[in-house]
């Protein structure tokens, strides 16, 4: 028995059937056309919108991405019922003029999709006076949070500026997102050689700043799982699901897989994140279908947990 809204199911099934019949009827003419983007149904109690906490704007430095232009990306996200996207900037990876990076990000979000795109500026702990960038993000651009990219930005989590940064974002009520990976190191451009980011140095500064809102993006942890275990046991760090791989990954991580395996991450610490436009947004949304999740679990992951941290505009 399907447990989602029955009336909605029948409506969608009829739509599919009609489309299939049409495809048979018109044959090659339809076959030659590109599959039109499916329009999502209106939001209902059983189909809440999704808050995507891991989206990035502008140009990936190494390839022209399919949805690199902001209007196209916003349309694509909306097509999949994303109702809000926390957006960083690819410029943050390699640019030195951080103030310019943040200003462009704030402007792009405000002009292209105000209230939908929530700008997450950056600071680079390796550059002097990064504290001023925090101030501007908060006081000038009114950003809800910051996103840092250790590795691409030339520092790791042992950097002495990390604890003051965490303390500062806590004091200002900002969210701090720490990006653990942008792409598989095996396919890096030959000029890029990044050290593997060790998460364990995060534990002490997080313990020293109770109440700080810190989210790890695209985090897989080490093979043994010991760093994930330590972070979950000893800190309040939250995660996005964009890096979770393997059939039924979400269910296995939160302990709701058919195999009955124990939870590795408390449900309330999981945010939806797609890593679009580098990853197809479809992959993360389909994972919500792949794992057998109940309605409260879906609501928490799709928007409830993120909304607890950041109210709508």
């Amino acid at each position: 028995m399907n447990l989602f809204d029955r009336r909605q199911f029948i409506k969608n099934s009829l739509g599919t059937g009609a489309a299939l019949s049409l495809a048979h009827a018109t044959g090659t003419a339809l076959a030659a056309a590109t599959t039109p983007p499916a329009k999502p149904a209106p939001l209902t109690k059983n189909s809440p919108g999704i808050i995507d906490t891991n989206v990035t704007l502008f140009q990936w430095p190494f390839r022209k991405l399919k949805y690199s232009e902001t209007p196209a990306l916003v349309a694509k996200l909306r097509q999949h019922h994303i109702i809000e996207a926390w957006a960083g900037s690819f410029e943050a990876l390699l640019h030195k003029d951080i103030a310019g990076v943040n200003e462009r990000l704030a402007t792009e979000c405000r002009e292209q999709a105000p209230g939908f795109l929530r700008p997450f500026g950056t600071v680079n702990l390796a550059w002097a006076d990064w504290e001023e960038d925090v101030r501007r993000c908060h006081e000038v651009h009114h950003m809800p949070g910051l996103r840092i990219y250790p590795g691409y930005q030339p520092f790791n989590l042992k950097h002495p500026g990390l604890a003051p940064l965490i303390a500062m974002v806590r004091e200002r009520g900002l969210i701090l997102q720490i990006v653990f990976q942008m792409e598989d190191p095996r396919v890096h451009h030959p000029l890029i050689k990044l050290e593997t980011l060790d998460a364990r140095p995060l534990i002490a500064p997080l313990q020293a700043a109770p109440g700080a809102k810190v989210q790890l993006l695209h985090f897989s942890g080490n093979v043994q799982g010991s760093d994930l275990q330590a972070l979950m046991a000893e800190t309040p760090a939250h995660l996005d699901l964009s890096r979770w791989e393997g059939n039924g990954a979400i269910g296995r991580m939160i302990g709701s897989a058919p195999s009955g395996s124990a939870a590795r991450v408390p449900l309330e610490r999981v945010f939806f994140g797609s890593h679009a436009p580098y990853f197809p947004v479809e992959t993360a949304v389909l994972k919500l279908m792949e794992s057998p999740l109940d309605r409260p679990q879906l609501n928490a992951i799709m928007q409830g947990n993120a909304r607890r941290w950041l109210p709508p505009v």
Binding site: N2, Q8, A38, P40, N46, H81, L288, P292, R295
Partner: peptide, 13 residues
């Protein structure tokens, strides 16, 4: 495996 609380059609899938 056929029990779903998530309807992908509502999400453009």
């Amino acid at each position: 495996p056929h029990d779903f609380h998530f309807n992908p059609a509502d999400y453009g899938l």
